[in-house]
């Protein structure tokens, strides 16, 4: 057994947690899926490699998972940040979750938010050079070309809301697309509805998105919706110093302000 499996086994044996949420083999060798390990002897099901990309944090909010008891989550860096952001937004309480950090050396269980904060303080963050390049490539297009690009991207959207389902920050019990008095977002997956949905989603995640990329991974039409989030995350960082999910401090960038915020666009 590797360290991850051993750690999971120990936690379950000691009854420190009721379930370990992790990655297991999928239906094909290249695929991974979430596994819910509840017995110590199932710990060997747990794997971790480069293909394990899904952000598992959102499972901890599911009533079915909550009903099992305390959960441990196999957590890449974005997952850790998600946990802290969820804590900031009052969705999980301290010591209700154990994080098993992976992909960065040893798997030492992080049993409270302070430990996660401390762990994250030493982990590199920010967008990769490739991600930044992708963003810059779109920004450098002309206005008409950007419109054409997104029109073509969004024309493929079928409003399946897989992006929402995969996003751990999309935990609202009634999403804005389901609010019908008034009906903010048109129901059909036409250009208007698709545009409004994706713009609204990006705005609702601005200052909260921890850039895990799960939304784009989940999109069956392969629309680069993560770029919208990346744009706003970059802006929120540059303009307001917003770095969500690094602490449980209540510092949502859009619920606060500085009198000196930039305003050259206002006449």
């Amino acid at each position: 057994m590797n360290e991850l499996q051993q750690t999971a086994k120990d936690l379950l044996e000691k009854n420190a947690v009721a379930v370990v949420i992790g990655y297991g083999m999928g239906s094909e060798p290249s695929l991974r899926r979430a596994v819910f390990v509840r017995k110590p002897d199932q710990a060997p099901q747990l794997i971790f490699d480069e293909s394990c990309r899904q952000n598992l944090a959102f499972y901890v909010l599911k009533p079915e998972v909550k009903a099992l008891g305390k959960a441990a989550v196999v957590a890449r860096t974005p997952t850790l940040r998600t946990l802290l952001q969820l804590a900031t937004e009052n969705q999980i309480t301290d010591e209700s979750v154990v994080a098993l950090p992976v992909g960065n050396g040893s798997v030492q269980p992080l049993t409270n938010f302070a430990a996660i904060e401390q762990y994250l303080a030493n982990v590199p963050r920010g967008f990769t050079a490739q991600e930044q390049q992708e963003l810059a490539a779109i920004k450098s297009k002309t206005l008409a070309d950007r419109w054409a690009f997104w029109k073509s991207e969004l024309s493929r959207c079928i409003k399946c809301y897989a992006c929402r389902a995969a996003c751990p920050m999309c935990y609202c019990s009634k999403c804005i697309v389901e609010v019908n008095q008034p009906q903010w977002v048109p129901v059909p997956s036409d250009m208007l509805g698709n545009l409004e949905w994706n713009v609204i989603r990006a705005m609702h995640l601005a200052g909260r998105c921890i850039s895990c990329g799960s939304c784009a991974d989940a999109c069956p039409a392969h629309i680069r919706i993560d770029l919208l989030n990346q744009l706003l995350a970059t802006e929120a960082m540059q303009q307001f110093g917003a770095e969500p999910g690094l602490s449980v401090r209540k510092d949502y960038a859009l619920a606060t302000f500085k009198p000196t915020d930039k305003e050259e666009f206002i006449r």
Partner: peptide, 22 residues
Amino acid sequence: AGNFHARRRWMLFRELLDFAGI
């Protein structure tokens, strides 16, 4: 402070609109 909160939202919203080709 309502206008200060609004200003922050507008900053991001403008960037997003521009990015989307609006």
